Amino acid sequence: MLFLTVAVVSAALIIGAAWGLWGKLPKGLEGFMVAMAGGALMVSVTIELIQPALQQTSLIELSVAVAAGALVFTGLDWWIEKQTEGSEGAGLLLAITLDGIPENLALGVALIGAGVPEVAALAGSILLSNLPEAAGGAKEMREGEMGRGRIMWLWTGTALILAAAAIIGNFALAGVDDEVLALIRGFAAGAVTASLATEVFPQAFREERYGTGVAVTLGLLIAFALSTLSGG
């Protein structure tokens, strides 16, 4: 079940990249999907990461871990943007990789001791996020005159890196103490939350404008429904 879930989520990057290179992608639709995925991730972060972590550690320790995750993501995101300014392809790919690593690490951690239905909201929201992000990223790289073959190889490599993050999160952390695992969940939750604020929602608003609020709400409701059905 682990490998099937990881394969589906990671394959969304490759499918999205192909969609962006050869398919038609209206900006409004892309923004709507990104916003919907962001809304779903808000629920997933709370139900699949923060709530389980709070059962294994104190609120103060968890808060520190969440804040650390947000600070680390924000700092690295800022550094990458400064280092790759003027190079849209490299900067965007690095930003999505940085965003995806904590998401997929969180997916791997969430799968420890749980069946796929119990993490349906988290896996589904990551999949929904990967599709439009990869499509938009590949389209932007192509506009920068990068070859289609090179773009597909880059996105395939990114998918493999993110799949590895999920598998490492599941196997390497399986025997870790519950309190340590809770702090790791909190760190991942902070990183994903920061990525929503700095990467996902601003992009969605630029492309969809005021429909963004409706899309975020729809994504939130879908993720909540999935979590309820899976008993989360």
Rank of each mutant, 00 (worst) to 15 (best):
A12I: 06
I14F: 04
I14N: 04
I14R: 02
I15F: 10
I15A: 14
G16T: 06
G16A: 03
G16C: 01
A18D: 06
G20A: 13
W22Q: 12
W22G: 14
W22R: 15
K24L: 08
P26C: 06
K27H: 07
G28F: 07
E30V: 13
E30N: 12
E30Q: 14
F32L: 10
M33H: 02
M36G: 08
G38I: 13
G38P: 08
G39Y: 04
G39A: 04
G39E: 03
A40V: 01
L41N: 05
L41T: 06
M42G: 03
V43G: 06
T46P: 05
T46S: 14
I47P: 01
L49R: 05
L49G: 02
P52G: 08
A53T: 02
L54H: 10
L54G: 09
Q55C: 07
Q55M: 12
Q55S: 14
Q55I: 12
T57Q: 02
T57K: 04
S58D: 08
S58Q: 06
L59F: 13
S63L: 03
V66L: 08
V66H: 01
A67S: 15
A67D: 09
A68E: 03
A68W: 03
A68I: 10
A68P: 15
A70H: 11
L71W: 04
L71G: 14
L71D: 11
F73S: 09
L76N: 14
L76V: 13
W78K: 15
W79M: 14
Q83L: 11
E85Y: 05
G86I: 05
S87C: 03
E88W: 00
G89R: 14
G89K: 08
A90V: 13
A90D: 12
G91F: 00
L92Q: 09
L92W: 00
L92N: 09
L93Q: 10
L93S: 11
I96K: 05
I96G: 08
T97R: 10
T97C: 11
D99M: 11
I101P: 15
I101N: 14
P102M: 08
P102D: 06
P102G: 07
N104L: 10
N104I: 04
G108M: 04
G108F: 00
V109L: 15
V109Q: 13
A110C: 10
A110M: 07
A110F: 00
L111Q: 12
L111G: 08
I112V: 12
I112D: 02
G113R: 12
G113A: 03
A114N: 15
A114H: 14
G115M: 04
V116W: 01
P117A: 11
A120T: 11
A120W: 01
S125V: 12
S125I: 06
I126W: 00
L127W: 01
L128T: 07
L128C: 10
S129Q: 14
N130Q: 06
N130D: 07
N130W: 00
L131T: 11
L131Y: 03
P132R: 06
E133Q: 11
E133A: 10
A135N: 06
E140K: 14
E140S: 15
E140P: 06
R142Q: 11
R142T: 06
E143L: 14
E143F: 08
E143G: 15
